[in-house]
């Protein structure tokens, strides 16, 4: 903009600055800028809230009947020294029958990068094939990259159903 003396509005830059060097123009500009920022924020914040997905209803069930697509597992049809994957709500679980016949259940998502673990009958460990992680049969991480033990579930056999529940 051309700066001719006659075009200066009264009280513009000619107005003597205060002790801290703040002119009236700078103060007004700051007010204007804060208005622009406030307008931008009042659009950006609701937009951000819209983009944020709503809280999911907790789909991870606290207790399930262990089974897969072929139907519920039956204790009689479950060979010892094997493990099978089942759905614990929306997350995978693994049900293992120890050589002595006892059932144990863990989260089947490896604590390293959430690959599916499987039961290795030869080594008697829970094995993550992605990066050669291994857990013992209490879920403790014993080899490879996994940083934490697998979450253990409680197993109850009722009749010919195997019920797995979260927590103790």
């Amino acid at each position: 903009m051309e700066e001719t003396p006659g075009s200066h509005p009264p009280g513009g830059d000619d107005f003597p600055p205060g002790d801290d060097g703040c002119t009236r123009r700078r103060a007004l500009n700051a007010f204007l800028a804060s208005g622009v920022v406030a307008t931008g924020a009042s659009v950006a914040y609701p937009l951000g809230r819209f983009l944020l997905p709503p809280e999911q209803a907790e789909s991870a069930a606290s207790s399930v009947v262990a089974g897969d697509k072929t139907g519920p597992f039956r204790p009689d049809d479950f060979p010892v020294n094997t493990g099978r994957i089942f759905k614990m709500g929306s997350k995978p679980g693994i049900l293992v029958r120890l050589p002595d016949g006892e059932f144990r259940a863990f989260s089947a998502a490896c604590t390293h990068l959430s690959c599916l673990v499987s039961y290795r009958a030869d080594k008697k460990v829970l094995w993550c094939a992605c990066h050669a992680g291994a857990y013992d049969l209490t879920g403790r991480n014993i080899a490879g990259p996994p940083p934490r033990p697998l979450a253990a579930f409680t197993v109850n056999v009722k009749g010919d159903e195997i019920i797995v529940s979260r927590g103790s």
């Binding site: 609701p46 809230r49 819209f50 944020l52 997905p53 709503p54 809280e55």
Partner: peptide, 10 residues
């Protein structure tokens, strides 16, 4: 339905 009742400002 989710959009109308659960998403913020949906």
């Amino acid at each position: 339905g989710t959009l109308m009742s659960h998403v913020t400002l949906g």
